[in-house]
Simulated scan of single mutants.
Amino acid sequence: MADQKIDNLLNLAMEAASEERIKSKNLNVGYDPEKKLWDVIVKYSGPQSGLAGEQILAVPLLGGYAVVTLPESEIDSYSHREQIEFIEKPKQLYFETFQGKEASCILPLQNGVSGLTGRGVLVGIVDSGIDFFHPDFRTEDGSSRILSLWDQSIPGNPPEGYVIGTEYTKEEINKALALGEIQGRRLVPSRDYTGHGTAVLGIAAGNGRGSGGANRGVAYESELLVVKMKNADKNSFPRTTELMEGVDYLIRQSIRLGKPIVVNISFGNNYGSHEPYN
């Protein structure tokens, strides 16, 4: 019977044949086949003095945990020590973007027969702005994927029909990119000071150029429309009025261009009734 102080995955790994462990993506994580040693996570109580020993190295952590390195042959007897409460096999960590895309079935859509890349679709955000110099928002020739950027916080040249901010065209953004960071940001001074809008748009539509294709977003061949909301007061957040105007602008741009649009809104509030519907 498997030792109940040892987690199921570690029991399974020790019972499996070496060939099965090598083929598995999980069973051999934590095991050094050359030294025949395991790194394991241990929950213990009592003094730390009894954690280490001959052929056993222990690194005590806060909260009654320790990382212990020991031969596989010693795991069973180690688990019978009175102070040992539980022994767990380590797990492999991954970039969350890979896990998220796999769980949401985005990868089969992008790479399968359908080949959905966002081409021909507009992706718009109303957020904290964008780092338009970021390579994920530029094409292979270095030009911008952003068709227009309305920064509500910079006075001077609002879009037609609106009264705040400045609208920057794709041509102006491309000129700024060609000038380089220092001069370019003088021509188009819009900045994403929090990085929130840049991160959101990267998830939605980044093309992965900044990571060699590793961290590609969902609609990575789409064209982009960006609204940076104005803060009503210093050290405050935007209001629903700025948000509504931003969404209105994006929809009007979509109609003008004759292209479908997906709008991402990651700003919100917790106002209103919280009573459930009957």
Rank of each mutant, 00 (worst) to 15 (best):
K5F: 00
K5G: 04
N8W: 00
N11L: 10
A17Q: 10
E19I: 14
S24A: 01
S24G: 02
N26R: 12
L27T: 03
N28K: 08
K36I: 06
Q48N: 15
S49E: 15
G50E: 15
L51P: 12
G53E: 11
G53W: 09
A58W: 01
V59A: 08
P60R: 00
G64Q: 10
A66W: 08
V67E: 15
E72L: 06
S73Y: 05
E74R: 03
I84C: 12
E88M: 13
L93S: 11
E102Q: 13
P108N: 10
P108G: 06
L116R: 06
T117D: 14
G118A: 14
V123P: 00
G124D: 10
V126R: 10
D127C: 06
D131K: 04
F132L: 06
T139I: 01
S144H: 07
I154K: 04
N157Q: 13
Y162A: 13
I164W: 02
T166P: 08
T169F: 02
E172P: 02
I182V: 07
L187F: 04
L187S: 05
D192K: 05
D192Q: 05
Y193I: 12
T194W: 10
G195D: 04
T198M: 03
G202Y: 07
G202L: 06
I203H: 02
I203Y: 07
G208P: 05
G210C: 05
S211V: 06
G212N: 10
A219S: 12
L225T: 13
L225D: 12
K230T: 05
N231T: 10
N231G: 01
S236T: 10
R239W: 00
E242Q: 14
D248S: 11
Y249A: 02
R256D: 05
L257E: 14
P260S: 03
G268N: 11
N269A: 04
S273D: 14
